[in-house]
Design a protein around this nucleic acid. Structure first.
Lengths: 224, 224
DNA sequence: TTTTTTACTTTACACTGTAAACTTTACACC
DNA sequence: GGTGTAAAGTTTACAGTGTAAAGTAAAAAA
């Protein structure tokens, strides 16, 4: 009986628009993961029934495409003003930060096939910057492929920026509890001497690989 | 003692075991993606009601953990007999092949937190091989981190081994149809001159980045 | 005013994971 | 043999999912 609408709503709410729906959806997913994002819950968060959202997005998939584009929008776009290496490093670091802020995104990023304007602008500017550095078009494809695969792959093993340390430590302990040390001595060593050591940071780990790759690319770069 | 009873009473159907359930689940997911894998459909494929599976797996998650471990079991385990670089290359290539055979796997691989025996054996042997090559334990962590992040990230943009070429070509066309050439000229160039060119192969693309990374690692290796 | 459009709600349906209780089967032991 | 027990599989049930279809109410256009 709580469902009874006793008084008409005083038309208080402005009509929804795509942007704000996407914002709310991202927030929901940030808080509880993608599986916590249902049309009904999202509607509720916006003061509306779930079905109302279908007037703005044809399917849930379309909404998720919008969410992904919104994450792409948080990634630093390379400019000609910056040195190519600086620009690529900045792009990768800001991408990792975005993936850390939105842990649901990495697993679905590269499998989407409806890129939005932010994604297009980002890739366009990236290609442009690398071509301008003197790389040929095949090499540009190679470079973007390595950098993005590495970044997304790494982003996938992140949970959230702050909790990742304790999380990984805890996970290491859980694993070693179930699979005893003497069966997997080297895994034990790695967990106890590296991952669970104070000061271990995923971001540092990411930077190591990133600089390794950037160094290798720089070696292929045409003379300035 | 306890002599094995071999009474020959014919069963209507041999009882399920974890292995065969996992095999069937992997097959279902290979064919229709993870979202095509429901407990009821899986049960049906095995000649059983969906709920029967809960006598073998506590939750669907546990089944998926088993599936992931099964994919890990398809990856080539490094041995001391092989040169470390050869072993790591082989490991990465076979991992990519496994991810291509099971396109549902990459997005969920690194987020699982219940590694099975195959995963443990693989990581144990990998660490062992790298330590034996003279890398210190921190460096081993770095190396595995780069290689696995790259491999999983790349695996994520694969669909399936055979269709990936046409798929990417088609996707390139779709994108360029929606976002006109003149808005994104460099993306247009990349699609037309690289991705949609005859002979473009995802595997070659993967190998480029893999060798780039392996070269860079080799430069950090202690003298033999 | 009347008509049309837009935003949203209601109802409905086919699926999902899985808890609880029940039935059937298989084998150990008297 | 019969009997007990445990494992394997079924049935029923429930809350939650995406979304099709049709209804409603308010704003905009005519």
């Amino acid at each position: 009986m709580t469902g009874k609408k006793t008084s008409a709503k005083p038309l208080s709410r402005a009509p929804l628009d795509k942007e704000s729906v996407i914002r709310a959806a991202v927030k929901l997913a940030d808080e509880g993961g993608l599986e916590a994002l249902s049309m009904r819950k999202l509607g509720h968060a916006l003061g509306v029934e779930g079905m109302a959202l279908y007037h703005h997005f044809a399917k849930k998939e379309a909404l998720i495409d919008g969410m992904i584009d919104s994450v792409h929008g948080e990634i630093s776009v390379p400019t000609i003003a910056d040195d190519w290496r600086v620009a690529m490093r900045e792009r990768a670091m800001s991408a990792l930060n975005a993936l850390a802020r939105h842990p649901w995104a990495a697993p679905i990023m590269e499998s989407r096939q409806n890129p939005g304007p932010a994604s297009m602008q980002l890739i366009e500017a990236t290609i442009k910057r690398l071509l301008n550095a003197g790389f040929n078009i095949q090499m540009v494809a190679h470079i973007i492929s390595v950098l993005d695969a590495y970044t997304i792959g790494f982003g996938q093993q992140l949970r959230s920026p702050t909790e990742s340390i304790e999380h990984e430590v805890q996970m290491g302990k859980d694993i070693m509890a179930k699979f005893p040390f003497d069966l997997y001595p080297h895994v034990g060593r790695l967990v106890s001497e590296v991952v669970s050591k104070a000061g271990y940071r995923s971001v540092k780990e990411f930077e190591f690989g990133l600089d390794l790759i950037l160094d290798a690319i720089a070696r292929l770069a045409p003379a300035k």
